[in-house]
Each structure stands twice: as structure tokens, then as C-alpha cells.
């Protein structure tokens, strides 16, 4: 899965604003298909906040899911090749940072894991560089971050300034799943009680509901071989969110989104009295709060249509 797209350069919305930070950006496969709602909304949100996400040229698969055996050096070629791309755009002065931003939390996990493993072992780094002899050598000084970390670094006031439609009426439960949190060396928050989404949602004015199942795995790739097992997890996660008072959940992962959203179909098969619940990409809600053009949210790709809920709360115009 190699993209031949060139780096996305976006025009500044209003001249006179301070120079925007250009960060290398790694999208990953699913953000170009079912996860388009995540990519488009995140890019729009970033732009609003003065962050330019510069898509890496010639990126390839992130190497998901991280291989876990001790003799798996070959499995790290794909992710490290992406790090070479980061190095290239950085060396060429096309970006202001050596930290590559990810949106998909599975890509984040896979890239950060491989980068840490290979950079931490000079011998392995050399082996991979030798193997990829057509590429320039990876020096090991690039880093992998998640978009949430970038948001967390921004001045909360600056984010609050952009909020045009506070989400006050919306009871929303952040969902984290696995790959943003675990293992500890990769995770960006307390693996048992993460709060990073909550803090940002509060800036957006949402009523944040703490779901005791916020870190429980959605079943991940098991959705391929046993959709009903995954549906049971979806049922548990969403029912507990509902019981705690939530009307919707948020996520940053296109696989969690699929399992939590699309698998509601199987949940209903097994639990007819289950009440469907919209599953937002976190940045879709940010775009709504910022009053951005709803087209960037690609709500048409959501399985459980969140628009009636948003309209009911007065967060979206009728007909939009």
C-alpha cells in the first residue's frame, strides 16, 4: 500500500496569522477509505489551529500490528522505511519538526513501537539500513507522536478561541481502546485511567461522561474471524457508556470505530433492545465545535448516523 501522492500543502485561511507549524504527517491506509472522516476532519481542525500536517511522500504500510517475537527484525522494515521518509522531508526543510504526526492510533502504536525498538538497538538499525540499501540510512532521530499529543501541547486558550458551537448539550464518553495507551512505553496517558480526551472535550464545552469501559479492547482484528465475539465487546463498551449517561462515544482509531459502530448491527441481532449509539472520530466533534464545514466530517461514512443527535442538540443545522 504505497501512496504516490505528493505532500499536501494547504493554503493559509487568513493572511496575517502567525507562521504555521509544519509537521510531517503519516495517514495510513484506512484513513484514505473508511476512516476518511477522521483524516478530513483532523486536517481541517489542524489547519484551524495553525498546524499544517504535511503528508509524507511515498509512505507505505505502518507495519500494523506490531510483531511480538524476538526474531522479527524483518517485520520492522515497513515502519522504519516510513521513518526514512520523515527524515527526508525534514532534511529537505519541508517541515519544522522531526516528529511525525499520526491520526490512526494503530499506526501510531506500530510506528512508535518499531522506531523505539530499532533506534534502541544500534546493531538492528544497521542491519535494516544495510537491507534497505537503496534508501538513505535512517539516523534514528525522528520521533512518532499522536495528534492528541500535539493538541495537548497547544495553548488551551487558543483552542477555546476556535470553539464556535460549544458542545454543552452533548453527553459524550471518550473511548481509548488499546493502542493509544498500551504498552506503557508506547502509551500517551495513564493506561488505566486516561484523561487526555476528557480535557480537550471539556475545552470544547462537552459534558464528558466517564465510561468505566473506556480502556477495554474492542476486539481489534478478531472482527475478521468472529464478528459476534467482537459485537459482545461492543455491547459491553457502549452499554456501560449509556448507563453512565453517554449519548455518544469518541475514538481515534478506524478499527475501533468500525467495531464500535458497524458491529452494532450484530449487537442488535443478539440484543434486540440495544439502543444504537453514534461513534464519533474525536476530530469530527472538534470540527463541529469549531463550526467548520460539516462536509469535512464525512458523516456519510458513519454506520450509526450521528447527525440526528447533533441536530437534536442544536449542534448542526437542519439539512446539513
Amino acid at each position: 500500500m504505497t501512496s504516490e501522492q505528493t505532500s499536501t500543502t494547504r493554503a493559509a485561511p487568513d493572511t496575517g496569522s502567525p507562521k504555521r507549524t509544519r509537521l510531517p504527517y503519516y495517514p495510513g491506509c484506512t484513513l484514505k477509505t473508511t476512516g476518511k472522516g477522521l483524516e478530513d476532519s483532523a486536517l481541517a481542525v489542524a489547519e484551524t489551529l495553525g498546524v499544517e500536517l504535511v503528508e509524507l511522500p511515498r509512505w507505505n504500510c505502518c507495519g500494523v500490528v506490531t510483531s511480538l517475537t524476538d526474531d522479527d527484525l524483518m517485520r520492522h522494515i515497513a515502519p522504519i522505511r516510513n521513518m526514512v521518509r520523515v527524515q527526508e522531508v525534514s532534511d529537505a526543510g519541508l517541515v519544522d519538526d522531526k516528529r511525525v504526526v499520526t491520526l490512526c492510533s494503530m499506526c501510531f502504536n506500530a510506528l512508535k513501537w518499531s522506531n523505539a525498538r530499532i533506534v534502541g538497538d544500534a546493531e538492528d538499525l544497521k542491519s535494516l539500513n544495510d537491507f534497505m540499501y537503496l534508501e538513505e540510512d535512517y539516523r534514528g532521530d525522528a520521533e512518532v507522536v499522536h495528534f492528541l499529543e500535539i493538541l495537548k501541547e497547544l495553548d488551551p486558550e487558543a483552542i477555546a478561541e476556535q470553539v464556535k458551537t460549544p458542545l454543552g448539550e452533548l453527553n459524550v464518553a471518550p473511548y481509548y481502546g488499546c493502542t493509544l495507551l498500551r504498552p506503557k512505553s508506547i502509551g500517551i496517558d495513564d493506561p488505566e485511567d486516561p484523561t487526555i480526551q476528557q480535557e480537550l472535550l471539556e475545552i470544547m464545552g462537552a459534558t464528558v461522561i466517564d465510561n468505566p469501559y473506556k480502556t477495554v479492547c474492542c476486539g481489534s482484528y478478531q472482527t475478521v474471524q468472529d464478528k459476534y465475539a467482537v459485537a459482545e465487546l461492543t455491547h459491553g463498551i457502549l452499554s456501560h457508556a449509556r448507563a453512565a449517561g453517554a449519548e455518544a462515544v469518541t475514538t481515534f482509531c478506524p478499527l475501533c470505530a468500525f467495531n464500535l459502530d458497524n458491529r452494532q448491527r450484530e449487537v442488535l441481532e443478539k440484543h434486540p433492545d440495544f439502543e444504537p449509539m453514534p461513534v464519533f472520530y474525536f476530530t469530527q466533534l472538534m470540527a463541529v465545535a469549531f463550526g467548520l464545514n460539516p462536509k469535512c466530517c464525512r458523516f456519510d461514512l458513519n454506520h450509526t448516523d450521528p447527525r440526528p443527535l447533533l441536530r437534536g442538540k442544536g449542534l448542526m443545522k437542519e439539512g446539513a
Binding site: E192, D210, P212, Y213, A243, A244, G245
Partner: peptide, 8 residues
């Protein structure tokens, strides 16, 4: 392994 509080 884990403890959960009933919100109500």
C-alpha cells in the same frame, strides 16, 4: 485484575 464502580 480490574475494579469498576457503578456510576449510580
Amino acid at each position: 485484575a480490574e475494579l469498576r464502580e457503578d456510576p449510580v
